[in-house]
Design a protein around this nucleic acid. Structure first.
Length: 423
RNA sequence: GGAGACAUGGCUGAGCGGUCGAUAGCGGCGGUCUUGAAAACCGUUAAACCGAAAGGUUUCGGGGGUUCGAAUCCCUCUGUCUCCGCCA
């Protein structure tokens, strides 16, 4: 969520930047500022009353020592009255804070000024494209048919044992999963990311801090008996590692990579978009999270983008990079690059990675800060990106590397799979 | 799962109702001595928030309560340790 003091000091700029996301509820901002004035006044009054109570209490102690019991009793009465005042003020304060919070969470992150205006995917800016987009022979198959043809995954078995969206991977399909996970983790380590293996369930506080709660509750699987949620992405535990912490400026950049299974209910989605591996309830992913100095967080975003591009290049997949327009970006992002791989057989671009800078939008709620050179507390910038999610990469590999002889495994991956073709 | 103990500043560890935001040691920082370093000695050193500053508020695992006053008493939650049980 946005920082209230920033809104106060840069109101026009905030409104201008929000307009890129087609956000026009400016009255919300005025209300927040009005409530914040009230909050500060109430806080001051409350603090002053507490100061009086504290000093009175000390005086009462002195009086008892000196045997002035009756004077002490009078002062006690005074304090009892003041305590009522404090109760009223702090209740008021609490409710003002809640009101501010409620309104604040309705305001999306302010996009970077480089973010193109627009309302849909059609307005995204293509910033890079590489790789060979060749015509496939008529006989080319979509990945779901290839999965069956080479017996790499079994959806029916998943249906029987669990339900739709929980496939079994089999044989070389299962090995390919393992190979990709290791490949992605090794690449991340080589690029300076610290590897962690996170918990697959998180508590409510974590789900709130990264914004899955309250609005996206229906997208997560829950374990109500223990108050846990299955993670929809490793971003949640990887970012919450830093919740309520103060890092050193000299620690930047703090780069973390983690592999996890991800669980998504995907309530409400259906149709051809969910065919095969395009959308699953459980899938595997290597996620990158970076804690950055606000001074150079956009350079770090470029670095993360390069890392992901390097992966796709080594997998010999044709891809393009889009800078998302205001209307197509997520609520919490300040700038997002989407990576799309060309699916030759489906004849469409498949989103395989999303790399974003959240600036202080996440760190504000996380209370993740650092002390700058001048000794001032500042919120850090947080970035994250998928590097990469397996199912769509598998889909792209199968479709793009299919040959009459079988499915070719790119060189970079052969050491991990132990085979160079699936036939 | 059962029983018991504990939770204090960067760390170790005192305090168990009143100048306690907290004794002490270690560590950190500054200095004296030294060609330099070590040792020794002296000084200094918790954090966040509000404020231009003076100053104020909050914080002794979290939340609540008792009291004029709580690190200290009570309730509750969480976590850690020990013993028993179970277990990959």
């Amino acid at each position: 969520m946005l920082v209230v003091s920033y809104i106060r000091e840069h109101k026009e700029e905030v409104i201008e930047r929000l307009s890129i996301k087609n956000f026009t509820k400016t009255e919300l901002i005025d209300e927040i500022l009005r409530l914040d004035d009230e909050r500060r006044a109430t806080q001051l009054e409350n603090d002053e009353t507490l100061a009086t109570i504290n000093s009175n209490a000390r005086t009462i102690g002195e009086m008892y020592k000196q045997g002035k019991a009756s004077e002490a009793n009078t002062l006690k009465e005074t304090n009892n009255v003041l305590k009522e005042t404090v109760k009223t003020l702090s209740d008021r304060l609490e409710s003002i804070k809640n009101e501010i919070q409620t309104k604040l969470v309705e305001i999306p992150n302010t996009p970077n000024l480089l973010v193109p205006r627009g309302t849909s995917a059609a307005d995204n800016l293509n910033v890079h494209q590489e790789g060979d987009i060749h015509e496939m022979p008529k006989s080319a198959l979509p990945h779901w048919e290839l999965l069956t043809k080479y017996d790499l995954a079994d959806f029916d078995l998943g249906n029987k044992v669990t339900g739709a969206g929980f496939p079994f991977y089999k044989g070389k399909g299962a090995k390919l999963q393992r190979a990709l996970i290791n490949f992605f983790l090794d690449e991340a380590a080589a690029d300076g990311y610290n590897e962690v293996q996170p918990p697959l369930m998180v508590n409510e506080a974590s789900a709130y801090a990264t914004g899955q709660l309250p609005d996206k509750e229906a997208q997560m699987y829950a374990v109500p008996l223990d108050g846990f949620y299955l993670i929809p992405t490793a971003e949640v535990p990887l970012t919450n590692m830093f919740r309520d912490t103060i890092v050193k400026e000299t620690d930047f950049p703090i780069k973390t990579a983690g592999y996890s299974s991800c669980f998504r209910r995907e309530a409400g989605s259906y149709g051809k978009n969910v065919r095969g591996l395009n959308r699953l309830h459980q899938f595997d992913k290597v996620e990158l999270v970076e804690i950055a100095n606000p001074e150079n967080s956009y350079e770090r975003l470029e670095a993360m983008k390069s890392h992901v591009a390097g992966l796709l290049r080594k997998l010999e997949l044709p891809f393009r990079v889009l800078r998302l327009c205001g209307g197509d970006m997520s609520f919490i992002s300040a700038m997002t690059y989407d990576f799309e791989v060309w699916s030759a057989a489906q004849k469409l671009w498949l989103e395989v990675s999303s790399v974003s800078n959240f600036e202080t939008f996440q760190s504000n709620r996380l209370k993740l800060r650092f002390k700058d050179k001048n000794g001032n507390m500042q919120l850090v910038h947080t970035l994250n990106g998928s590097a990469l999610a397996l199912p769509r990469i598998v889909a792209a590999l199968l479709e793009n590397h299919q040959t009459p002889e079988g499915i070719y495994i790119p060189k970079a991956l052969q050491n991990y799979t132990g085979f160079d073709i699936i036939k």
